[in-house]
Computed example of a mutant assay.
Amino acid sequence: MKTVGNTILFTGGGSGIGRELAQRFHDLGNAVIVAGRRREALEETIAGRERMSALTLDVDDPEAIMAFARRVVTEYPELNVLINNAGIMRSEDLTRRRDLADAEETIVTNLLAPIRLINALIDHLAVQPDAAIINVSSGLAFVPLSATPTYSATKAAIHSYTVSLRTQLKGKVDVIELAPPGVQTELTPGQSARDGYMPLDQFADEVMTLFQQQPTPGEILVERVKLLRWAERDGRFDQVVGMLSAR
């Protein structure tokens, strides 16, 4: 993947990892479109930045995704990079019967929405020069956090989907997975100040260095996430599951 001269669409660009990386890619010399539900947050992301735009998008609405895709390729015909970053994380108690609204919303936002957006844009991306799709998964794709079972399951699914997508699009579109560790953002309340999570600026520094490697790795893995990524390979899976649950 080239890192300069792209037109990049970032979902979940109004806060956290999405905002930070969208601004970092813009700093390199890319035109960047940030998308999300909250217009005010998106405007904060792009404030004072030329060649950076904001579009609202409800990723939970399949018809809205199709309409959004038509608008994006019309207004930004040079779009060649899609970064699926939008996501939610909810704690769930599996020990008794419960309302499944949180689980269902998590599946729609974290799994169905990126699949739908890729589907809506693939015909356009497949004919663009230097095209790339980047799916943001999580270290929890490889070792689940028991307190957030559906979140972990959706990220495992995104990992698997990305592998298949990469294979099918080989030679047409670069497909990259970014798997963050726990990062100090407001993905969950209070997480941005929680000890044991990676500071956002340090995460972004390491990620951007990895993206500028040539060839770009198929998986962008900062050092802190490798314990999770390789836990099963290294015979530490049960140990790491217990460590996460205890924390």
Rank of each mutant, 00 (worst) to 15 (best):
V4I: 14
G5F: 10
G12F: 03
G16K: 02
R19V: 01
L21N: 04
A22W: 00
Q23A: 11
R24L: 06
R24Q: 05
L28Y: 11
G29L: 07
A31R: 10
I33M: 13
I33Q: 04
V34E: 04
A35I: 07
E40M: 03
E40D: 10
T45K: 03
I46H: 09
E50A: 15
E50S: 14
E50F: 06
T56Q: 04
D58N: 12
V59D: 00
V59I: 12
P62E: 10
P62G: 08
E63C: 00
A67V: 08
R70G: 15
R71D: 15
R71T: 15
V72M: 13
V73R: 06
V73Y: 05
E75H: 15
E78R: 15
V81R: 06
A86G: 11
R90T: 06
E92H: 05
E92C: 02
L94Y: 07
T95A: 14
L100F: 06
A101Y: 04
D102G: 10
T106F: 05
T109R: 08
N110I: 05
L111F: 15
L112C: 00
L117R: 09
N119Y: 12
N119V: 06
I122D: 02
L125D: 02
L125H: 09
Q128H: 15
D130S: 12
D130H: 13
D130F: 08
A131D: 00
A132Q: 09
A132S: 12
I134R: 00
V136D: 03
V136Q: 05
G139L: 14
P144T: 12
P144G: 12
P144N: 14
T148R: 01
P149E: 11
P149N: 11
T150P: 00
S152V: 01
A153C: 04
S160N: 13
S160Q: 14
S160K: 11
T162N: 07
V163Y: 03
S164Q: 15
S164G: 15
R166A: 13
R166I: 04
T167A: 12
Q168M: 06
K170M: 06
K170L: 09
G171L: 02
G171K: 00
K172S: 11
K172G: 03
V173F: 06
V173M: 02
D174N: 10
V175Y: 02
I176M: 07
L178A: 04
A179M: 14
P181A: 15
L187W: 03
L187T: 03
T188D: 01
P189V: 10
G190M: 13
G190I: 13
S192T: 12
S192G: 15
G196W: 05
P199Q: 13
D201S: 13
Q202W: 01
L210V: 03
F211C: 05
F211D: 01
Q214I: 01
P217V: 02
G218H: 14
I220P: 05
L221M: 13
L221C: 10
V222T: 15
E223C: 01
L227P: 03
L228G: 11
L228E: 14
R229V: 10
R229H: 11
A231W: 04
E232K: 13
E232A: 04
R233S: 11
D234K: 08
G235V: 07
F237K: 10
G242R: 08
S245P: 00
S245W: 01
R247L: 08
